[in-house]
Design a protein around this nucleic acid. Structure first.
Lengths: 133, 133
DNA sequence: GATAGGGCTTCCAGTTGCTGGAGGGTCAAG
DNA sequence: CTTGACCCTCCAGCAACTGGAAGCCCTATC
């Protein structure tokens, strides 16, 4: 199967698939005309990576997951450990975004947002504490 | 004040401050020996950017915020608009991270995590739907 | 005066994960 | 035979830094 086809079926842009080949995540065969030729197995890997990426795993984590996936003798605990570590990172990101959200929406709430130059948001960024009441 | 000092007071690494100069966010003076010389005003800007970055604004947004900050005639509505747009983006990121978290923790929950190779996490990534019950 | 250390300078390269574009070959249809 | 849709490779660039090399500068100590 050509790259265009593989792209549609895996949900990955052709450019991305070429990039994945370049970094050694997948190694499709080549047809006589030089076109990449993807087997069902390659397609499977691509979809696997697509899902893992969409869950926020890095490329290197995807590589590790792929090799666990290919390893018939893996221990599921290895996978679970990786997944949990990743879950922790997700949790941290969420925490930090929630903190940003809280701070910023507080500032936005205080800002009257009219034509006057007085602006609690800028004051907040400048380190001036706005009056509480 | 030297860059090391400015670094401590602004909470930004010296490297980052140099980078900010390179892209024109701050323009410190130079001493006779070629060292950067930061005034209180420069320091103020650096702290401003540090806070804005920590709230997740991009560099270009920081640039815009800085120029609004410097503009005595700005309308606070302009700032509020930017802040709200940014809040929306933060909200979207949080949503997508929560979705990842939900999916992944579901998979983790299903995985027994022992020495056997059977692994619902990998199956999930491979597109196989695990049995519900 | 020599030397050791720390801080400062510039410049170049690398990070992550792609994405866009130039320039050109291939293939099937009309 | 040409058109258009594919495919190929290679190079450059994005954000926002970060690390390192090579080399001044400044102060303190011997």
């Amino acid at each position: 199967m050509n790259i265009g086809n593989a792209s549609v079926k895996s949900g990955l842009p052709a450019k991305t698939i070429r990039y994945y080949e370049e970094i050694g995540l997948v190694s499709p065969d080549r047809s006589d005309n030089g076109y990449r030729d993807f087997s069902q197995d390659h397609l499977h890997k691509l979809s696997f990576v697509q899902r893992a990426r969409s869950l926020g795993f890095t490329i290197e984590e995807c590589r590790a997951l792929l090799s666990l996936y290919e390893d018939r003798d893996r221990a599921s605990s290895d996978v679970k450990t990786m997944a949990r570590a990743h879950l922790d990172q997700i949790g941290e990101k969420i925490e930090s975004l929630l903190a940003m959200q809280a701070t910023l929406s507080e500032l936005v709430k205080k800002c009257h947002g009219d034509n006057r130059p007085d602006c609690p948001i800028l004051d907040g960024l400048a380190g001036k504490q706005g009056k509480k009441a």
